[in-house]
Design a protein around this nucleic acid. Structure first.
Lengths: 250, 250
DNA sequence: CAAGCTTGTTGATGTAGCTCAATGTCTTTA
DNA sequence: TAAAGACATTGAGCTACATCAACAAGCTTG
């Protein structure tokens, strides 16, 4: 565990504002009217900065806020009783952190910033109160929760049924897609996480990730140097995931 | 796929009633006042019976209702593009089906009855409306969604970090616990699902499940004949899961 | 109750991905 | 800008689980 640096949360004096946020259309306020967004804005006192490597929260911390990622990149992970780590997700701009805490009023995972990041804390009890007044806000929250479930089921399918090459291809495609929706290139991006974190996420060892990267390179599907990704053959990559036989054949 | 029998949904003339339900305290109405439960009751027109092997819903069906399992046993599964099946969960009394559909208004998995079962359909749009009036109902729904996320993360940990014996032990313990909370024996129960379904759920082949059962038997932890389970050494079983080293050692 | 089907068990063999290890490269810090 | 630490790559060998196959035991149905 190299993530145990002291937690550094810098308060930002700037008032947060969903209305002017670049990821408004991907985040909790999606589809809300101007007036509704304004009311949601009143919940978010200020943005919070999280330094690379610092924890936004840790397993067992009491739930105070959900967090919308405004800028940067996070990983969430759960620990087994004997200390083994499973990365459960990577979150980027407009994605929500802390949904798993609603269940017990305590966060059920660790959320670590993979680069200097900024989040919008949304005090949960206030959010629930406001959501009573704003049906579409409540509906959005329900959808966000449900989306997370669907995502997790897709991951189960990956871990349960796909081989290493397929998992890595699926992972890269997923990143590519999400970055694209945020206005970034879908073919040219930078990995924010280590090989080890990717491995943990995909249920593989980091050495296997390295080897799978080599495979993709040999097949001229991806040019991956260090953390710089250039997708050379997007359809080819897609085919790798869809034709997901456990072993052999393509 | 042996689950493609014609879908048989028999309408039950009996009016559903949460108030008199045996799993009231485990289901959506948990913690609601009498009056609140009555209002929830008005949403549930009638119970629905689902024959063993029949589908309650299938991937892509439009979301109309969430379903509370009143009696019986279900499995949910997602299919990969190329037709591989991943079982995502087994649901028993008091557990909710269909939460994954809120995300897109379409069910994202198949729900198949593993024995003759009975569910309480809760029309989702009505539920959302009622939840505006009943904060605790809304809160319960949020919690249920969040719980599903936590459960899924636990499964990711299993598939990503635990070996076959540990996964099976974890699976049996989980069943044992849930049955116990419903007033059944935690040491003596019947599996409702095939070895293949267990395997799919745990990311293993059915042959591996058989062999792991043999291991548990050899270690005198469990007496498992066919689908009849007798847990002989509960602490021993627990230790098997907690000491979850990927290979070797205990 | 016999025949056929589904489900479960067990053995033999193969292999994908893990482990261990050596080495290289990039990043941080002093 | 040198040194240390973190991160990535690649090879060699091992092992847990998959695959294939044969058979046994329960259910189902005529």
């Amino acid at each position: 565990m190299s993530d145990s640096e002291p937690q550094l949360l810098h308060l930002h004096t700037l008032k947060a504002s969903c209305a002017s946020c670049s990821v408004l259309e991907l985040c909790l306020p999606i589809g809300l009217t101007g007036v509704e967004v304004e009311r949601l804005d009143t919940l978010i006192a200020q943005r919070v900065k999280v330094k690379k490597g610092a924890a936004l929260y840790r397993t067992g911390d009491p739930l105070r806020s959900l967090y919308a990622v405004r800028l940067g990149f996070f990983k969430t992970s759960v620990l087994s009783v004997d200390g083994r780590e499973q990365v459960t997700g990577f979150q980027m701009q407009g994605e929500m952190l802390g949904l798993d805490a609603i269940s017990t009023d305590h966060y059920a995972c660790n959320a670590i910033a993979l680069e200097d990041s900024e989040v919008c804390p949304i005090p949960f009890s206030n959010l629930e109160k406001l959501a009573r007044d704003l049906p579409s806000l409540q509906h959005n929250l329900n959808k966000l929760l449900s989306q997370e479930i669907v995502r997790d089921h897709d991951m189960l399918l990956m871990l349960g049924n796909m081989n290493a090459d397929e998992r890595l291809a699926g992972f890269l495609l997923n990143l590519s897609q999400r970055l694209n929706r945020r206005g970034y290139s879908s073919r040219d991006f930078v990995l924010r996480m280590s090989r080890e974190a990717i491995g943990s996420y995909l249920g593989l060892r980091l050495e296997t990730i390295c080897r799978c990267i080599a495979h993709l390179r040999e097949e001229n599907l991806v040019d991956l140097q260090g953390r710089n990704v250039k997708i050379l053959d997007l359809p080819g990559l897609r085919q790798k995931v869809t034709g997901c036989h456990r072993h052999t054949e393509l």
